[in-house]
């Protein structure tokens, strides 16, 4: 498949052929989940010939699953591609920061999305905090520590607001983790194009700032017409994700919830519901 320098070299070569009009020469595998393969490629543009850019498009391919009945497989692939695209289109129309849908084919099982520049919040926060640790012992430590904390708090507020804008239109994400939040640099159209994606391990440039817009990605488990309960569970999942992947950032969660609480009219009610959801902890005791 792709050249050895691509991020794909870390992954096993995909066994699934790419659907037309895409081909392996123009697509770079970014990540492989249980459901879908994510490639970076070009779509309706000529940038594939340019060496500076790897493409403007994130191609999400849901290959058919040979273990299930062909009729069921078609039905599920179609329903999931359409559901994801519909949610994204609606979010876009309502001004929620998500990638645009460029095109799709439910028969072939793909959807082409706008490529989002930047890094995942997961990587951004990790590197930012690591860098902070490296500075320990230097002069002006207290001031810098305060500065770093303020930067993290500011990021958490922006995350809360982004989730709030999503919930304001009664959409829930369904899988809010820090890997599904992108940090898009302030002027990403110009400037350096950075390799992106949660799995991209080539940390060419260390993260020194957490500036940028929060963009929500991967709406494979999203749902519309969400109730307060669903929104509270969405927040609970995000809290837990922070707790397990960024324990040091956990103390700033109140900033995330504060940003969320001010973001739309019904937010306070959802925050109260969140307290109930937290109390439940593990959701059910097993039945014999």
């Amino acid at each position: 498949m792709p050249s050895s320098s691509s991020p794909c070299s870390q992954l096993t070569a995909p066994t699934h052929a790419l659907p037309a009009p895409f081909d392996s020469a123009s697509c770079t595998l970014i990540t492989q989940g249980a459901e879908a393969l994510l490639y970076r490629t070009s779509f309706l543009s000529h940038s594939s010939t340019s060496s500076s850019s790897a493409g403007n498009c994130a191609l999400k391919h849901r290959p058919s699953k040979p273990y299930r009945h062909a009729v069921l497989d078609k039905r599920l692939t179609r329903a999931r591609i359409l559901a994801e695209a519909r949610v994204l289109v609606r979010c876009r129309r309502e001004g929620v920061p998500v990638p645009a849908v460029l095109g799709l084919d439910w028969e072939e099982g793909w959807v082409a999305l706008e490529w989002v520049e930047g890094v995942t919040v997961r990587r951004g926060v990790d590197e930012f905090v690591d860098k902070g640790r490296g500075e320990e012992g230097e002069e002006g430590l207290e001031d810098r520590k305060k500065e770093r904390e303020a930067t993290l708090r500011d990021l958490m507020i922006r995350i809360g607001r982004a989730v709030g804008r999503l919930h304001a239109i009664d959409v829930v994400h369904g899988d809010l983790t820090t890997s599904n939040l992108m940090l898009r640099p302030p002027s990403s159209s110009s400037g350096v194009v950075r390799q992106s994606g949660s799995t991209s391990p080539d940390a060419s440039v260390p993260i020194t700032t957490l500036a940028g817009d929060i963009v929500l990605i991967d709406f494979g488990l999203a749902a519309q017409n969400a109730l307060d309960e669903d929104k509270a569970v969405d927040l609970y999942v995000l809290e837990r994700a922070f707790g397990s992947t960024h324990p040091y950032a956990e103390k700033f969660l109140d900033s995330m919830l504060a940003g969320y609480g001010d973001s739309y009219k019904g937010a306070r009610v959802v925050l109260r519901r969140l307290e109930d959801v937290r109390m439940r902890g593990r959701k059910k005791s097993m039945l014999g």
Partner: peptide
């Protein structure tokens, strides 16, 4: 059978990937 087993295989695959 086809429906419920497809569900079971799907969540198993997700757990394996996870």
């Amino acid at each position: 059978q086809e429906t419920v087993f497809a569900m079971l295989v799907e969540i198993t695959e997700r757990a394996m990937a996870h």
